[in-house]
Simulated assay, not measured.
Amino acid sequence: MPRRALCIAGRVLLVLLVSGVTAWGALALLYSSTTNALASAVLAGAFLLCGLLTALAVGARRRARAAVTGFALLFAVLLGWWSGIEPSNDRDWQPDVARLAHAEIKGDRVTVRNVRNFAYRSETDYTPHYYDRTYDLGKLRSVDLIAVYWMGPAIAHTILSFGFEGGDQLAISIETRKERGETYSTTRGFFKQYELHYVVADERDVVRLRTSYRKDPPEDVYVYRLHGPLENARRVFLQYMQRINDLQARPEFYNTLIDNCTTGIWMNARINPGHVPLSWKVFASGYLPEYLHGVGMLAPGVPFAELQRLGYINPRARAAGDAEDFSRLIRVGLPGQ
């Protein structure tokens, strides 16, 4: 390739790099404060201007080296500030995520503290309630994937629910831990705005909230029985318990792309040999059930469309109300029960 062409290609790549860094840095600064939005916007605008001027200097070949050097130093300062932002378990949390669950593991017996089971009157009006329960790993009989849709087929919130002999179900939903007054934003989730939270809950809470109380937008909930060795299920359950305890001791940030409800399931499942390979369908979480069906983990031999039809539980959940056997009632007719 002629030298001139190489130089042009190099400048184009450098402009793209500067542009990408500028966009990331400006957004990081924009979302850096929830108390002084004006200051955050001013800092973000200033960084954006510096990045644009640097990109223009590179493109025009006017004092490009000085511009890039200055911008690199500015970005190094930004990274130093960014690395100093630490997660915390000590904030003014919204009531639904105020308590952290934790587990006491003694052989095959696992006592889970602070299992959430709120009594809802609406999505935001509820009476908090928690309980402690001991689970026997020798009586673990099933794992279900719960997929929740509200914005089309590509995106879903995913939950694992562990079923034990006698009818107990323990659902674990990986979510953002929001402070009072905070709302969820996909974009903010890239920028250390939410702590990572494992909601450990009764299905009458975490499932019924979504089938019966969330209205804006309404949510469609599907339940799929996962197929595989029970030993694998036990390892994943213990991995979840360890993760829950770790987050109590050392909080972490949620990340929209790499540490969310679905990537968290995949990462915890890596404890098993021969775990499901990483796929783009793990990131496009709405397609995770179809992906798992394709690798033989959902009712082999049953077409996915039929599993999806049978797995839709909203009507059964509404009919079950707060019945003690809610978990059994929502699974009536599901393949593999």
Rank of each mutant, 00 (worst) to 15 (best):
R4C: 07
A5C: 02
I8E: 09
I8Q: 07
L13W: 07
V21I: 15
L27M: 14
A28K: 03
Y31L: 13
Y31F: 15
S32H: 07
T35N: 07
N36C: 02
L38F: 14
S40L: 01
L43H: 08
F47P: 02
G51I: 05
L52N: 00
A55N: 05
V58A: 04
G59L: 12
G59V: 04
A60Y: 04
A64S: 14
A64G: 09
L73G: 13
L73F: 13
L73I: 14
A76D: 09
G80V: 11
G84M: 11
I85F: 05
N89C: 05
N89R: 13
D92E: 12
Q94Y: 00
P95D: 13
V97Q: 03
H102P: 00
A103N: 06
E104I: 12
K106T: 14
G107I: 02
G107V: 10
R109G: 00
V112N: 10
T124K: 09
Y130F: 15
Y131N: 06
Y135D: 03
L137S: 06
L140V: 09
V143A: 13
W150Q: 13
H157L: 04
L160V: 09
S161F: 06
F162A: 06
F164V: 11
F164K: 08
D168M: 02
Q169T: 10
L170M: 08
A171V: 10
A171R: 01
R180A: 11
S185R: 10
R188S: 12
F190P: 03
L196F: 15
V199I: 14
A201V: 09
R210T: 12
R214P: 00
K215P: 00
P218K: 11
D220F: 05
Y222S: 01
V223G: 00
R225Q: 10
G228K: 08
P229F: 06
E231Y: 00
R235Q: 13
R235I: 10
V236I: 15
L238D: 05
L238W: 05
Q242I: 00
I244R: 01
D246Q: 14
Q248I: 00
R250K: 13
E252W: 00
T256P: 08
D259R: 15
T263Y: 07
G264A: 15
W266L: 14
A269C: 11
I271L: 06
N272P: 01
P273T: 10
V276G: 01
W280K: 08
F283Q: 02
A284F: 15
S285I: 11
E290H: 07
H293C: 01
G294D: 15
G296M: 11
A299I: 02
A299E: 14
P303L: 07
P303E: 04
E306G: 04
E306M: 03
E306R: 07
L307F: 11
L307W: 08
R309T: 05
L310M: 12
Y312A: 02
R316P: 01
R316Y: 02
A319G: 02
A320R: 03
S327Y: 12
R331F: 02
R331M: 04
V332D: 10
V332T: 14
G333F: 10
P335H: 08
G336E: 01
